[in-house]
Design a protein around this nucleic acid. Structure first.
Lengths: 222, 222
DNA sequence: CGAGTTGAACGTACGGTGTACGATAACCAC
DNA sequence: GTGGTTATCGTACACCGTACGTTCAACTCG
């Protein structure tokens, strides 16, 4: 009764269509049934390529991580690190679901390779073992955490745009009790208006704080 | 047929029992039915106190945020900021689900008050408007992002403990291809053994990098 | 005291979810 | 042909969030 097609599907296609689906409809809309339908296949067929839904999403994350540009091994390690972080930031913004899922599953091969490359770059940069250990956490925390926060602001729950959310918020809020917050939200709106270019480089600014801090600490330790 | 109890339940109890439930069983196990059962009430009764499940969780987060110690307004603003961040870190470790949900919903009154207090402290510290704006993102990103990452390591998906996960990982991994990663994981294990106290202060170390960086930048700007 | 009204409680039901199980039928080696 | 292998997937189950409408304790008013 069932099995006519017998083809045109493999783990890679499952993962890449899963990524495309999550990009388009959001990861919440991704169900085994909906993804199967997109692939023109029965829901249970997916379990031939994927252990369960969690493993599907973990696989999608790992596949997405593959696109991150790893820090170059030649040239200035600090710049290589920075370039790689920017590449990761861009990728996570493109695949918003991946940022939130990043820490929800054990790392696959792509993520372990990525971790290795960051650690290597920190080490090549001349940090001692202790600072490599701490610097790694600082840098990866920033890449993922900053992006999650950014996405939270960009796609505020219940609103269509940051502008709408910010303006609604300003209306509702007790402006006298929260003056600094009002100012901060105005800052976000100005960023949207292009009045102020600082928004674009925010990620790199904070990354710079961290890398400079690590370099200073290393210098202090001699 | 239905309504006998008529009491002993209000929004506050719904939220605090929700928090207790999520702390004990994990937020994934929290369903309207399971929470209602815990409260000795029908599932639909909850909808009298909470608009829907998302709003329930948003309320739980906001209620948890209330416990964070806000930066003191007297004394050294930098130390106040740091103390508050440590308090937030501790709270988010205790309520792991809150860290992941932090950016998933619009901020409630407690979170807006918290935001305001961080912004105020940065401003009192003497940062200019631009650095307050950027510094706020840096600091909050660190508080939430670092904790999420920490929790990901502590409760690795599919393992009972960090030790188990790390050791399993070391077994499975290609140690020759990933030498820095092997070293890093060993570092985590040593941290567990108490051989090395650095793990405890990692959060504060990175926070220090950020705050020092902001102070330096402000000094540079004069 | 009795009648009428209000509003909290929540049973039922619907359309979804992930996935265990087992039936089906195309393919391949002989 | 024939038999074994293997990918496909229909069915079913337990659970989810929640819309809808009923029930009935408690309050108000005469």
């Amino acid at each position: 009764m069932n099995p006519p097609p017998r083809s045109s599907i493999d783990r890679d296609r499952v993962l890449s269509e899963g990524i495309a689906f999550a990009d388009e409809q959001g990861v919440d809309a991704l169900s085994m049934r909906s993804l199967a339908e997109r692939l023109g296949v029965g829901a249970m067929t997916l379990y031939g390529y994927v252990a369960n839904k969690d493993e599907l999403i973990a696989g999608m994350v790992d596949r997405a991580v593959l696109e991150i540009e790893l820090p170059a091994t030649d040239g200035n390690p600090r710049e290589a690190l920075s370039a790689s972080a920017v590449s990761a930031h861009r990728l996570l913004l493109d695949h918003g679901w991946a940022a939130t899922q990043w820490n929800e599953s054990a790392p696959g091969p792509a993520r372990t390779a990525y971790m290795e490359s960051i650690l290597r770059a920190l080490s090549d940069w001349g940090l001692d073992d202790d600072l490599v250990f701490r610097g790694y956490h600082a840098v990866t925390m920033h890449i993922v955490g900053f992006t999650i926060q950014e996405l939270g602001y960009r796609n505020p729950a219940g609103f269509d745009s940051l502008r709408e959310a910010a303006e609604g918020f300003l209306d509702v809020m007790d402006a006298d009790a929260l003056p600094h917050l009002v100012e901060h939200i105005r800052g976000h709106l100005h960023g949207l208006d292009g009045v102020d270019p600082r928004h674009d480089s925010e990620f790199e600014f904070v990354l710079g704080l961290l890398l400079d801090g690590l370099a200073n600490e290393q210098a202090k330790r001699g």
